[in-house]
Design a binder for these strands. Structure first.
Lengths: 355, 355
DNA sequence: CCATTTTGCGCAACCGGTTACGCAAAATCA
DNA sequence: TGATTTTGCGTAACCGGTTGCGCAAAATGG
C-alpha cells in the first residue's frame, strides 16, 4: 500500500462515485443495500481509516481541545489534565497538551498555535499576572470565537468561564483551625508565587484575615519567604529563612505552608532545629499531595476538589462549544470549596485519621 | 468578523488572487515588493491566522505527535511527557495526549483515533502484555507508515524503535548493594505489575539473579505480593503481607521495594512493627520520586534517566518521521543505564548524601 | 531595435471528505 | 395505465491553503 487509501480509492475500486461510498459508510439513505454491503466489505478489506483532517476542513469542526498548564509535573495540574482529558475522550474529542514551563512567552506562543490548529476550545491554567497585558493572548482566542476556560486563576473582568478553588476560604479555615487549637504566633510560609498570582495571593489573604479577625496583630504573624521556583520548575528552598524565624525567642508555635512540598521541607528543617512536631510546632500544608499522608507525622493540609474542577471546566467548555451559535449565556464563574484534611501534624489527633 | 478570515478573503479585499496572497505571506519570489507589502499590511490589520487544518490536508503533514501513557498522574510518565513535548515544541509540532488509564481497550481506541488524525508519529508507554495480541494496534500504526516508539517496555520482536531503562541491571545492582552491606535474607516486594510487563518482570529478575550469584538460596529471598493497582490507578497496599513477612523468626534484614510508593508504605508498616530503619531493616525503593528524599530516613532508590529517555524517544521518532522517504535504517533499541541513589535507608550513610 | 529572459500575476487542479442538486429508473398510487 | 413519488446514483462545488503551468508585461542583453 503506497499511501493511505481514501474514499476515492474505494470508489475507484468499486467503480462507483465517492459520494455513494460516503453514503454507505455513513449509513445514509439513497444507497442500495447491495452497494452498501459491497462498500463496507471493501472498506474493511483495505482497512479504510477516514481522515479527520479532511473532515475537519469540510465541516469546520476539529474535535480538538487545547490545554495549557504551567507545568505538567505538578500533581495538581496532572490531576486536572486527567479529568479534562477523560471528559474530552467521552465526547470523541482529543486534547493538545501545552506545557508552558512557567514561561509566559511560551504560553502566548501556544495560544497562537492552538488558534492555527482551530481548536474548538481551550482550558488554561494561566501562569502569571505580572504584566498588565497578561491575558491579551487569551482575549485574542475569545475574539476568534474560541471558548476559553480559566482554571485556578481568577480574572476580575470575568470575560471567560472560570473554575477556581476557594483558596482564600481554605486558607482562612486552616488558619482558624490553628487558632482554635490555641496557637497565637503563627508563621505563613509563602507559596513560591505569592506575589504573582491569585492562588498564592488568596492563600496569604485568607491567613491574614483569620489572624486579624482573631485580634492577632501583625506581630503575631511571621511571613518567611522561604522558597521560589527556579529553572525547570525546581522548588528552591531556603532553610535559613525558616531557621531564622524559629530561632527567635518569640518563635511561632505553628507554620502554615503555602504548599505541601514546602511544608515537607520545613518539617525537615524543624527536625534539624530539634523542634518536635506537633509538640513544639504545628505544621500544615496546602494541596494534599500523595505523600502528605506519609510524612511523620502525617500532614494536615487542604484538599482542592481537583476532580470536580477538571470535570466542571471541561463541561462548561463544552457548553460554550455547543452553544456557540445560540445566544451566549452569562459566563459562569464557579468557585468550589476546598476541604481541610486533618491529620496529626498539628497535634489534637482526630479519629479516625482521614486520607 | 463573522468567520475567521481566509486567504481568499484577503485576496478579495485586495482584488488579487489567493495565489499571490499566498506567495506574499510565504515570502516567495514572483510578487512585487509593493503587492507583498499591501498583503502583509492587510494581513496584520485583520490579524490573519492561517489554518493548519487546511495546510495539513494540502501537504499531508500534520505536525502532530501522539503520546499514549497508562496514567498521566504517575511522576515518571509526566516527566517523560514533559521531555517529549519540549522536543516537539522546538520542532513546531504539537502533541495529542492520550491517557489510557490502565485500560488496554482504551489504548487501542486511542491508537485508532491517532490514525484518523493522521499523526506523524506516536510514542507509547504500553500498558500491558497479558494477551498475545497486545501490540496489534501498534503494529497497525506501523503498517500505515506511522513511526512508533515504545517507551519503558521492550518488545522481543523489535519491530519498533524502543527506549528502555535498564531495569534488570538496576535491580541487580541494588540487590548487590544490599548483599555487599552484609544482608543475606532479603525481601523483594513486588511492583504492582510484576507479572504483566517487563518493567516489573525485569526488576524481579535482576533481584533473583543477584541473589543466585551470591549463592543465596531461594530460602533467603522473600517475595511479598503486597500491592496492586486498583480503580483510578490507586495503589492498593496490603500491609498484612509485609507484616507477615517480618513477623517470622528468620525475618529479612532488608526489603527492596519494586517502586518508591510501595517502599514508603512499607517503611510505615515496619515502624508500626517497631522495627527501626535502617538498624533493624534496610529499605530501598525504585523510581526516585520527589518525596523519596524526604522520608525518614531518606530512601535509597534507583533513578531512571527519564529526561534522557524522553528526549531520546522523541529524537528517534523524528528521525523516523524525517527518514520516512529515505531507506529505513535499522531500528534502534536504546537501553539506558539507571543510577543508584544512595541515601540513609540502608545504613552505612555515604557522604555527601546525594539527591 | 529585436530576441530572450525575468517578473508579476492568475487559472485551475489538488489534498480527502462533504453536500446540494439533478436525473433516470423503479416503485407506488389513483 | 398514467401520474407521482421514491430510490439509487452521479456531478460539481466547497472547505482553505498549495502548486504547476501559462501568459502578458517589463527588464535585460546583444
Amino acid at each position: 500500500m503506497d499511501h493511505t487509501p481514501t474514499i476515492h480509492d474505494l470508489a475507484a475500486d468499486l467503480k462507483i462515485s465517492a459520494t455513494t461510498v460516503w453514503r454507505a459508510l455513513h449509513d445514509r439513505p439513497r444507497v442500495s443495500a447491495k452497494t452498501r454491503a459491497r462498500v463496507l466489505d471493501r472498506a474493511k478489506a483495505i482497512d479504510y481509516v477516514p481522515s479527520l483532517v479532511a473532515q475537519n476542513l469540510s465541516h469546520g469542526r476539529t474535535r480538538t481541545l487545547g490545554i495549557i498548564v504551567p507545568a505538567i509535573g505538578h500533581p495538581v495540574f496532572s490531576a486536572l489534565i486527567e479529568e479534562i482529558e477523560a471528559v474530552a475522550f467521552r465526547r470523541d474529542y482529543n486534547v493538545i497538551l501545552c506545557d508552558a514551563r512557567l514561561d509566559i512567552a511560551r504560553e502566548i506562543e501556544y495560544a497562537r498555535r492552538l488558534l492555527q490548529r482551530r481548536v474548538e476550545g481551550v482550558i488554561v491554567v494561566p501562569f502569571s499576572k505580572r504584566s498588565r497585558q497578561w491575558d491579551a493572548h487569551l482575549v485574542e482566542l475569545q475574539k476568534r470565537n474560541v471558548p476559553v476556560i480559566l482554571l485556578e486563576h481568577e480574572l476580575p473582568g470575568n470575560r471567560f468561564g472560570q473554575v477556581v478553588a476557594d483558596n482564600f476560604d481554605a486558607s482562612f479555615q486552616m488558619t482558624r483551625h490553628l487558632i482554635d487549637l490555641g496557637h497565637r504566633r503563627i508563621a505563613f510560609a509563602f507559596h513560591p508565587f505569592h506575589e504573582r498570582d491569585l492562588v498564592g495571593r488568596d492563600r496569604v489573604a485568607g491567613f491574614t484575615k483569620a489572624m486579624a479577625e482573631a485580634g492577632l496583630t501583625k506581630q503575631a504573624s511571621f511571613l518567611p519567604d522561604a522558597c521560589e521556583f527556579g529553572a525547570r520548575q525546581a522548588l528552591h528552598y531556603h532553610p535559613d529563612k525558616i531557621a531564622a524565624c524559629f530561632s527567635r525567642a518569640d518563635r511561632p508555635t505553628a507554620v502554615f505552608a503555602g504548599m505541601d512540598m514546602l511544608a515537607i521541607r520545613i518539617m525537615e528543617t524543624l527536625r534539624e532545629l530539634k523542634l518536635e512536631i506537633p509538640r513544639d510546632v504545628a505544621v500544615t500544608g496546602f494541596d494534599n499531595v500523595e505523600f502528605s499522608q506519609f510524612t511523620q507525622p502525617p500532614l494536615t493540609t487542604v484538599q482542592q476538589p481537583t476532580e470536580e474542577m477538571g470535570r466542571l471546566a471541561a463541561e462548561i467548555l463544552f457548553e460554550g462549544i455547543e452553544g456557540k451559535t445560540r445566544p451566549r449565556k452569562k459566563i459562569l464563574c464557579q468557585r468550589l470549596p476546598c476541604r481541610l484534611v486533618i491529620r496529626q501534624s498539628c497535634g489534637a489527633p482526630v479519629s479516625p485519621p482521614s486520607l
